[in-house]
Write a protein that binds this DNA or RNA. Structure first.
Length: 425
RNA sequence: GGAGAGGUGGCUGAGUGGUUGAAAGCGGCUCCCUGCUAAGGAGUUACAGGAGGUAACUUUUGUCGAGGGUUCGAAUCCCUCCCUCUCCGCCA
């Protein structure tokens, strides 16, 4: 959420900053609302002050006299009643205005960072570096072909169980998924991340706090009988973990790692990535998350990205680092580095981690602060996948494939998987 | 799911309509005292927001689980919701 005070006092700069996303944002309406609301806030406060003094004086008069029905008292009470009516009218107006402002302000995305490359869409993203040698050969199999041959996952039965875009992992496939989760959690906890196992169902307030609601209600699954949704990413409960908290600034940065299943409706992506492990309604992910001092978030963003990268390096998977342009930034992000892993069958890099600095955008929505220099200050939040498990498995299958149809397991994973080769039983 | 009991400051806990943001105790902080420690004494100590000031600070509002209501005035009375505990039922 953007700062309401900034919208009220400097609407032009707000519009300019937002327009870096390559779209026009008109905020004159919300600007007027914030001005009106401020006036009402001031008026209410001064009326409350007068009314409070009056009530105290009534208390005094009653205390001093035996007779509780004097003309003086009745006049004072009458005056108090007038205050009460006036205040409640203003409070009603304030409530309506506040709701209108929230409705509007919650739909405004975060400001893009000045450091992010300016651009319209995906095609303007900037490759910062590559790591490893991309495997380029003819007759390479896709991961779903490999998976089918090895019988480690399948879709048809899963479609019967649920619908399309669900998958069942079988035997060594399930084992490999589990190995990847444990491997990543161990790596990150050794690197001073505190592991959390969070609720997979989250309420509307939590989704609003991290930015998924109200604008993207179409992208998550909702439980019809409750105010609960299937969490689309651990970023949601992680942000909500400290909602309405004032964190001791000595504890910053707080670094968390959480494994969670993620559920996404993938509305609007019909026909894309229909095969394999790339785009599913349910997938597993290990998420990294920082709550940090606002003055240190740029440095923290580099670190969280390095921490995600370290997994790809350990697994010896070729990847590249991409600086997401202003037009392609997610709603809550101010700057995002994507890690894209090489998928030889499609001869391209595919996103496997997205590391974002949200500045105080989520902290403001979720009211997460720390006392810094004696003032309660919204902290900065950063999130990054470390990594998406299903896509990591896809990359391992494709990059490790052997001519005999087996798959070489990366050395770092062998202790977790229990074998250095994945082949038909 | 049924029945009952609760939710008050960092903690324990008093407070059923009036100058009460809240007694008392513990804890915290400051100072004093004895060589150090232990013990003791005096004082001080909720939080959040707004406005003003470079700042120390001043001022104002709100807050006793949350949100409404009654009243000139609510921690206290009424309603709704959330949460915790106990018993029963169910259950991994």
């Amino acid at each position: 959420m953007l700062d309401q005070k900034l919208i009220r006092e400097n609407p032009t700069s707000v519009e300019e900053n937002l327009s870096l996303r390559g779209k026009v944002y008109k905020i004159s309406y919300i600007h007027e609302l914030t001005i009106k609301k401020k006036q009402i806030d001031i008026e209410i406060s001064s009326l409350q002050s007068e009314s409070k003094k009056l009530s105290k004086s009534i208390g005094q008069v009653i205390g001093e006299s035996q007779n509780k029905n004097t003309q003086e008292l009745n006049d004072l009470k009458k005056k108090g009643n007038e205050y009460r009516i006036k205040i409640s009218e203003l409070e009603e107006a304030q409530r309506i205005l506040d709701e209108q402002i929230r409705n509007e302000i919650y739909k405004l995305p975060n400001f893009p960072s000045k450091d992010a490359p300016i651009g319209k869409d995906e095609s303007d993203n900037v490759q910062i570096k590559t790591w490893g040698d991309p495997l380029i050969k003819e007759n390479l199999k896709s991961h779903w072909e490999i998976g089918e041959n090895l019988n480690i996952f399948e879709s048809a039965k899963s479609t019967k169980i649920s619908k399309s875009r669900f998958i069942t992992l079988i035997g060594d496939g399930a084992r490999l998924e589990r190995a990847l989760i444990n491997f990543m959690l161990d790596m990150h906890t050794k690197n001073n991340y505190l592991e959390l196992m969070l609720p997979a169902l989250v309420n509307s307030e939590s989704l609003t706090g991290s930015g998924q609601l109200p604008k993207f209600s179409n992208e998550s699954f909702k439980c019809s009988n409750d105010d609960l949704w299937l969490s689309p990413t651990a970023e949601v409960p992680l942000t909500a973990f400290h909602r309405n908290n004032i964190i001791d600034s000595k504890q910053l940065p707080l670094k968390y790692v959480a494994y969670s299943p993620c559920f996404r409706r993938e509305a609007g992506s019909y026909g894309r990535d229909t095969k394999g492990l790339i785009r599913l309604h349910q997938f597993n992910k290990v998420e990294l998350y920082w709550f940090c001092d606002p003055s240190k978030s740029i440095e923290a963003h580099k670190k969280i990205t390095l921490d995600a990268e370290s997994i790809l390096k350990k697994l010896n998977l070729p990847y590249r680092l991409v600086d997401i342009c202003t037009g392609d930034l997610g709603f809550s992000a101010s700057r995002t580095f994507d890690l894209e892993v090489w998928l030889p069958s499609s001869k391209c890099y595919r996103e496997i981690s997205s590391c974002s600095n949200c500045l105080d955008f989520q902290a403001r929505r979720s009211s997460i602060r720390a006392k810094i220099d004696k003032k309660n200050t919204y902290i900065h939040t950063l999130n990054g996948s470390g990594l998406a498990i299903g896509r990591t498995m896809a990359a391992i299958l494709e990059n490790g494939q052997q001519t005999d149809g087996s798959v070489k397991i990366p050395d770092a994973l062998v202790p977790y998987f229990g074998s250095n080769i994945l082949k038909t039983a």
